[in-house]
Design a protein around this nucleic acid. Structure first.
Lengths: 267, 267
DNA sequence: TATAGTGCCTGACCCAAGGGGAGAGTCAAT
DNA sequence: ATTGACTCTCCCCTTGGGTCAGGCACTATA
């Protein structure tokens, strides 16, 4: 049996952490002296603690670990670990994106001598758009569920034998920003005018192209809003994006292209 | 000028976040109505906010951003961004390590049908070690500074024209576990017995080999401690590791090998 | 001009995963 | 018996916000 201090040295974990794990019931000592409150740990606890350290490296939260370690079914355990591997891979992708973005930023910085140099890269013009014939699906969704809803739209196209014209985008109606649930309408352009869900009337729009991953899309929105204000226009409807070059063209995120349209009117 | 709601939509940031940034002084509105307390933001704030979002993606803390954005010298700014890129790369390496470790774990799991199956991989034996002739450097250091102190040792070997015999390791004297400062003695074996800092006397040791990255080293320590207790031995001195296969053999972390020696005596 | 429907304010409390320190009690060796 | 190391509980602190609650402010419509 080990005291907390010994146990902490063996497992390379701080005493504070052990107290914490005891309180939340993740790792309780083998025995606690009822009079002094001293904690005594045994071998089994060493093994459990080392497993906990591992799971922590895998990115599990303490809560998740608790339910994991209570889990009896080994297949469930296995699939939970496998899923976590996907989570780690997603995290790696995100870090890679950030590295790519930062690298591009450093280049812009060096060229322009301005940490905000990247903002000058947006060429903004006003155009009269033509009508767009689209099928649409509007709902409140989390940004990360985009893929799922697009899937449904494309299934519908197949089922109803429609002909997509290559346009693919999203309209933002949000009245309040919220990553978890935003009022978005996904649109896919089709040729069959009579069977469309709606026709987006041509309209005066401030327009620009964003090159790079979606995480920096709001830079483009910001540039547009600033430009609109500075050039004597005013908003006139919900802005929308059209995806021009995406991952489906097997391009890296830094080469993706998105057109952004902001309906405006003269002030 | 925009109200918080508008501003939050433009910048894709929640109102609560804007309140928070205002309180900590990271992003203060252009104007605050002294009677109603309403916040009004301008274009400059849009740019600043978007830059903040970027910096957040790069992994800066809000505190770091504050000092970054107050920084006047562009060379300092540039080098801070460059350093952050290294931080992101280190993070990516760590995630990759975790993925590799988890993959290996899943294989062990599948083979043994036990989530703790990996623990059975340690073959532990008791041996009488031979004397080791070493130069040594003992101090309280952070684990991450290992490299720096080893550099100093190898410089000394070059300067004093000593002959390393290929042994390279570390002795752990810690009385209290702490990642930031631990009492460690780095050792490098040499041939010149008369010019050594010390001779580690041969001793009875429980011994095992750890295969894999250093993050899971404590598994080996745990296995040893358990084994020692179960087999009627007792600790008898500070444990030490010898690095057998490392990154300097241009191997991936999952192939590194570390021998661990735990001085023991019969109980 | 009254009123409804938003929008916005502050303040208080909450989360994870512990860290730091105070003040008091315990253990083991001298 | 005393010292020094060890441990206990309790409370507050951190980061980056989220979540109400209660109370004003603004604007459009009737």
């Amino acid at each position: 049996m080990f005291t907390v201090g010994e146990f902490s040295r063996i497992c390379q974990v701080s005493i504070k952490t052990l107290h914490h794990y005891d309180r939340i019931g993740l790792l309780t000592p083998l025995k606690v002296d009822p009079f002094t409150g001293y904690r005594y740990y045994g071998q089994q606890q060493v093994e459990r603690m080392l497993l906990i350290s591992r799971l922590k490296r895998y990115g599990f939260s303490l809560d998740e670990m608790k339910s994991l370690l209570e889990c009896e079914d080994e297949r469930v355990l296995f699939s939970r670990l496998s899923r976590q591997k996907e989570v780690l891979k997603a995290q790696r992708r995100e870090t890679e994106l950030a590295i790519a973005e930062l690298s591009a930023h450093l280049q812009d910085f060096q060229k322009t001598g301005d940490i905000m140099g990247y903002q000058k890269n947006y060429e903004i013009t006003v155009t009269e758009t033509t009508d767009r014939v689209v099928i649409a699906s509007r709902q409140v969704m989390a940004v990360r569920d985009f893929g799922r809803y697009y899937g449904a739209l494309y299934e519908r196209i197949a089922r109803e034998r429609l002909t997509p014209d290559g346009v693919c985008g999203a309209v933002y109606y949000d009245e309040e920003f919220n990553h978890e649930s935003t009022d978005i309408e996904l649109i896919v352009g089709i040729r069959e005018k009579d069977r469309a869900d709606k026709i987006m009337k041509g309209q005066l729009c401030a327009w620009t192209v964003h090159r790079g991953p979606y995480s920096s899309l709001s830079d483009a929105y910001g540039a547009l809003v600033t430009w609109i204000e500075e050039n004597g226009y005013a908003w006139d409807g919900a802005p929308y994006e059209i995806y021009i070059k995406t991952q489906f063209d097997s391009l890296a995120p830094e080469d993706w292209e998105t057109e952004i349209f902001f309906p405006v009117k003269r002030k």
